[in-house]
Design a protein around this nucleic acid. Structure first.
Length: 547
DNA sequence: ACCGTCGGCGCC
DNA sequence: AAAGGGCGCCGACGGT
């Protein structure tokens, strides 16, 4: 496959350099392209199905999209650097062992955390893309698992393309529907002050507590007020208040719910984030240590169920919404090779499969036990069920337990494809050292144990959450390729869920493509695993109609 | 006026 | 004795 590297022209801001490279990154040909002609050049070259190599997809690709050009494949040097440098599979490589470079820095365009030095020679060196690519390719080729790393780098890079494309097209959003929802729940949009229903609830709470001046938006004020009225609470949080049976409870919970809606996704949010019928969050691939995406701005990963009715397909279009059912348990079953758990996962509802296998009595128990195993619950109903889970699914439980033990020791762990957890920081190591030193105090020992357990829960979850993120990336990449045959766009992605905006007469075909892509993702990652990756797929007019 | 931290809560 | 992973965002708060 041809690699085409795009980089800045050191001599001109109006031009870029395009280098043709071999699979190993050796230079074949160089040409200079005027920025004004770049989109057309990329469009022409795309016919050969090259892999475009560049420093940063979020920097290079948006302009191409604006010009109406899409590319099939890329290699995002910044994202791939982060993976390769840390991966246990490429530990011995030059790239992993070398000093920190500008490639380890934050995303360009992100807020600059460090002050720029006054001395030019101390500034980060200009990024040498060709050299970096060769180091990455060499590190992967010499690694313990070149196949897995290659798949991971390709998936991560395609994720970067998809994120840029999603940022480009936006989520179809009906301001009218959003306003109807807000008006229904809160009362009409006020010119100033609080919406009527919110104010009425606040008044109700103040009356029930017999405190006419209470400011509900101040935690301190509210905590004092609750205590003065006889509520024995430690905080003002929902989980603590909800079980108390007093007149103020119900209106207070209702107030909290609505106040949250207003501040997070109210009219101000709508004015800020929705323009010309599209919500444009800034998707950040690789933004989470586990490999999940993050978003910056708009809170796109937390769209509350109550306003999902505002996500509406255009006239004549549909939303194809699909989510993977119990993705993390299925991923755990596949990566641990636990055949009993995989058998439970052949049920469309894995939790019901666990019940049918006789491990627990109810679906609710199955769910809490499974999530407890993945998150590291050590108390409560979840912990009580752990012995039964261990007996029923020994290999799956052993995998997460091993990851937890590794974290407790301060070791790193890796996902199925080799994304590797960060090492604990200096404070963590210091605490561990202090506890094992001669004459360590009981407090030191306790503190170190707690840190150890905390980090163990992180690494336990890392291997499963991170591998689930890899499955999801492969799913999306496969789906994106299949969507080339349609006039349809991926518009939203949420960990284990995708949304495609599709012409109505293509929606069923798109739904089928979504299912085929899930099958392909399972095989790409795990070969002929017995685990089924079940989906819920819905073709709807608005997001609230899914599920 | 601005900035960082924290409680609280939305999503998976 | 207590012991649930990963995020982003908002307003309040306390400091300067």
């Amino acid at each position: 496959m041809t690699l085409l590297l795009l980089l800045d022209d050191a001599t001109s801001a109006d031009a870029v350099v395009m280098q043709e490279l071999t699979d190993e990154g050796a230079l074949v040909a160089t040409e200079t392209v005027l920025v004004a002609n770049l989109a057309q050049t990329v469009r022409d070259r795309e016919a050969d199905q090259p892999r475009w190599v560049w420093d940063d997809t979020s920097r290079r690709y948006p302009a191409l999209l604006d010009a109406g050009v899409r590319v099939q494949r890329c290699h995002d040097l910044r994202l791939c650097h982060a993976i390769v440098r840390r991966s246990i599979y490429a530990r011995g490589s030059e790239l992993a062992q070398g000093p920190t470079t500008a490639w380890d820095g934050p995303r360009p365009g992100a807020p600059e955390p460090v002050e720029v030095s006054l001395f030019d020679e101390e500034r980060p060196q200009t990024l040498d893309c060709a050299d970096e690519l060769r180091r990455q390719l060499a590190a992967v080729a010499a690694s313990d698992e070149p196949g897995r790393l290659r798949l991971l780098l390709a998936a991560e890079s395609t994720g970067a393309l998809i994120a840029a494309e999603m940022n480009h097209v936006g989520v179809p959003w009906s301001v009218a529907a959003h306003d109807r929802i807000l008006t229904e729940m809160l009362g009409p949009r006020p010119r100033n002050g609080r919406p009527a229903k919110l104010e009425a609830l606040a008044e109700e709470v103040r009356e029930a507590l017999a405190q006419p001046n209470l400011n509900l938006d101040s935690q301190q004020d509210l905590l004092r007020g609750l205590r003065a009225a006889g509520y024995d609470v430690e905080s003002t949080s929902r989980w603590e208040i909800k079980d108390i049976d007093l007149p103020a409870t119900e209106p207070l919970l209702a107030y909290k719910k609505l106040a949250r809606l207003l501040s997070s996704n109210g009219w101000a949010w709508m004015d800020t984030w929705v323009h010309r019928g599209r919500f444009r969050p800034d998707c950040v691939p690789g933004g989470v240590v586990t490999g999940r995406w993050a978003t910056s701005g708009g809170g796109a990963l937390q769209l509350p169920a109550s306003i999902r009715g505002a996500v509406r397909a255009d006239d004549g279009w549909k939303l194809v919404v699909a989510d993977a059912a119990q993705l993390e348990p299925r991923v755990l079953a596949a990566m641990s090779g636990d055949t009993a758990m995989a058998a439970a996962g052949r049920h469309a509802d894995l939790y019901q499969g666990v019940v049918d296998a006789g491990i627990v009595e109810t679906r609710a128990q199955a769910k809490v036990a499974m999530l407890g195993a993945i998150y590291g619950a050590t108390t409560g109903p979840s912990a009580v069920l752990m012995p039964r889970l261990t007996q029923g699914f020994p290999r799956a439980v052993a995998l997460v337990e091993a990851a937890a033990r590794a974290g407790e020791r301060g070791d790193v762990v890796a996902t199925w494809l080799g994304r590797t957890s960060p090492a604990p920081d200096a404070a963590w190591r210091d605490a561990l050292a202090a506890a094992s030193a001669e004459g360590a105090g009981a407090d030191d020992v306790r503190a170190a144990r707690r840190r150890g357990r905390d980090w163990g829960r992180f690494t336990r979850n890392f291997v499963v959450q991170g591998t689930a993120a890899e499955w999801a990336l492969c799913w999306m990449a496969s789906l994106r390729r299949r969507l080339r045959e349609h006039d349809a766009h991926l518009v939203f992605f949420l960990h284990d869920e995708v949304m495609v905006h599709a012409p109505a007469d293509e929606a069923d075909a798109v739904a089928e493509a979504v299912r085929e892509a899930a099958l392909e993702a399972g095989h790409l990652l795990f070969g002929d695993t017995p685990v089924d990756f079940a989906l819920n797929v819905a073709v709807v007019d608005s997001y609230d109609q899914a599920k």
